[in-house]
Computed example of a mutant assay.
Amino acid sequence: MKGTKEKLIEAAVVALNRDESATIEQIANVAGVTRRTIHRCFNDRNTLVEECKQTMLRVCNLKMTEAYHSSEQPAVQIENMFYAALEVGVQYSFVKKLFKRNQYTDLGNNHEVAYDDVKANWFRLVELLQQQGAIDRKLSIPWIYNLFGGMVDIAIEAQQAGDVARNDIKKFSWTSFKGSIGLH
């Protein structure tokens, strides 16, 4: 069973994913608690945001690293990394937004460095797949990376809106991403 702090972090990630400037009051509403409950666990909003960041980095790094090591075949690895990103959807989106704002030269702690390693592994996979002719070489790797993240965001939005059956989201999003980069 999750503790109060973990539930507050999850609610904060949801609220901050919707609106990066979400207030403590808005986060409390998402969590279904009072503002005072949040302040019992976190000194201020910045502390809560930093705790969210560290927690989500751990979750995302673990899942993406497991997916990367799940196979020796690059096409399978990239597919499994895509599914891992979908599995941790909101967390992945949150981490991605954080790192869009930060410069990689500013990275300091181990979880942030691990995120950079996961991204570097992902870039190497795409480069290898392009060298093998499995992915269209006309597309730059940063472009493909943005497509990857964008497809995860679309899947999250579709799931939250209820527009697509939950069971179809994984299949539809992978098929769309794979087709967009010419992966065969």
Rank of each mutant, 00 (worst) to 15 (best):
C41D: 07
F42S: 09
R45Y: 03
R45C: 05
T47L: 00
V49K: 08
E50Q: 15
E50S: 12
E50D: 10
E51R: 11
C52D: 03
K53N: 12
Q54S: 14
M56W: 06
M64K: 09
S70R: 05
S71F: 00
S71H: 01
E72P: 00
P74A: 14
P74Y: 10
V76K: 11
I78W: 03
N80T: 08
N80Y: 01
Y83L: 12
A84N: 01
A85H: 06
A85R: 12
E87K: 15
E87I: 01
E87G: 13
G89F: 11
G89K: 12
G89V: 08
G89A: 11
V90W: 05
V90D: 07
Q91P: 02
Q91S: 14
Y92W: 14
Y92A: 15
Y92R: 13
S93W: 00
S93R: 05
S93Y: 04
S93E: 08
S93A: 07
F94I: 06
F94D: 06
V95M: 05
V95S: 06
V95I: 14
K96F: 13
K97W: 02
K97M: 14
K100L: 15
R101K: 12
R101M: 08
N102C: 09
Y104G: 06
T105L: 09
T105P: 00
L107P: 01
V113I: 13
V113A: 07
D116N: 05
K119W: 11
N121C: 09
W122Q: 09
W122S: 02
F123K: 14
